[in-house]
């Protein structure tokens, strides 16, 4: 704090109009970010080129860790699971988030309070939620199978069956993260002017036509932002999957993130784990950039920029 004052007394004495340096404000953050964020990136890259075990020795192996990846069936499966999970966990919240945003855009009593309830799933502690969902998924005692029985659907095995485990986990993820999509789109709806709707009404358009030809195109930039954020988060999803299934049954719900965890912290194969981390990181960045490029092609508005 003292340095901030000292370093800046000097230049202002010489020329009062020169914009003084703001570096003292930023410096602690630069140091912190370098230490806990940039250093791990660089060190991960470095480790990925080594045969490395915890407490043991390390030796340079070049790209050998990366070359192991294509021949690793568990990694290939994990990629497939991750993509399957991500596609579902992006599309469902986007659709439901759009519907909820349109509903919450209307005026009704207790709107603020109900919006607070609606947002609660995304703020609640994921592990705590996962625990309760696990109980609800229970084939004999779980409440979900009881609810299904009320509408005449036979009981499911949910997360205890390889075929249904990923959709079941996506159900939890969708329940948890639809609110974020809703909030982003609600901001978008608030920014749409009233005129297009007024002239559409005069032209005798019905509600669906107005939604399809006015609301949806105007929301496109916000939908893209929501899609990007959802893609990043769905790819990275860990807590829910780990706490509910730990990647099981077998490896049926093992995503890249889960496999990475096993390799690094169950088998302590740090070098190989780092290589997976690098590839995973590249996948997340790659998909985000792809969607960003797509966003440039969708109609860009000033309001859309404000959401990211």
């Amino acid at each position: 704090m003292r340095e901030a004052a000292a370093s800046n007394a000097h230049p202002s004495a010489r020329s009062p109009w020169r914009p003084p340096s703001y570096w003292p404000f930023v410096l602690p953050a630069v140091v912190t970010v370098s230490a806990v964020i940039v250093f791990p990136w660089v060190f991960t890259l470095w480790m990925s080129l080594h045969e490395w075990t915890v407490g043991g020795s390390s030796s340079f192996v070049g790209l050998a860790n990366y070359l192991r990846l294509p021949g690793d069936p568990r990694f290939a499966d994990a990629v497939v699971h991750t993509l399957y999970y991500t596609v579902l966990a992006v599309l469902l919240p986007l659709v439901l988030g759009t519907v909820s945003a349109v509903i919450f855009h209307a005026r009704f009593p207790l709107r603020g309070f109900l919006r607070g309830i609606f947002v609660m799933p995304m703020m609640a502690t994921p592990v705590a939620i996962a625990l309760v969902w696990t109980m609800m998924f229970h084939p004999q005692l779980g409440v979900l199978n009881y609810l299904l029985s009320l509408v005449g659907i036979p009981p499911q095995l949910w997360v205890f069956e390889p075929a249904t485990v990923i959709p079941s986990l996506v159900l939890v993820e969708t329940w948890q993260w639809t609110p974020l999509v809703m909030l982003i789109l609600l901001g978008g709806l608030a920014a749409i002017p009233a005129e297009p709707y007024e002239s559409a009404l005069i032209d005798g358009a019905n509600r669906w036509q107005m939604f399809r030809h006015i609301t949806l195109p105007m929301l496109a930039p916000f939908l893209m932002v929501a899609a990007i954020i959802r893609t990043i988060d769905a790819l990275k999803s860990f807590d829910i999957i780990y706490a509910i299934t730990q990647g099981g049954p077998g490896t049926a719900s093992e995503t890249i993130n889960l496999y990475l965890y096993s390799v690094a912290f169950a088998y302590y194969d740090i070098g190989y784990g780092s290589a997976i981390a690098v590839v995973f990181f590249a996948l997340v960045i790659g998909l985000s950039v792809l969607l960003l490029a797509l966003r440039q092609r969708t109609k860009w508005t000033e309001m859309g920029g404000a959401a990211l």
Partner: peptide, 13 residues
């Protein structure tokens, strides 16, 4: 965008 686990390996060491 970075997965939390990618921080965990180097910082753990």
């Amino acid at each position: 965008m970075t997965p939390g686990l990618s921080y965990l390996i180097p910082l753990f060491l």
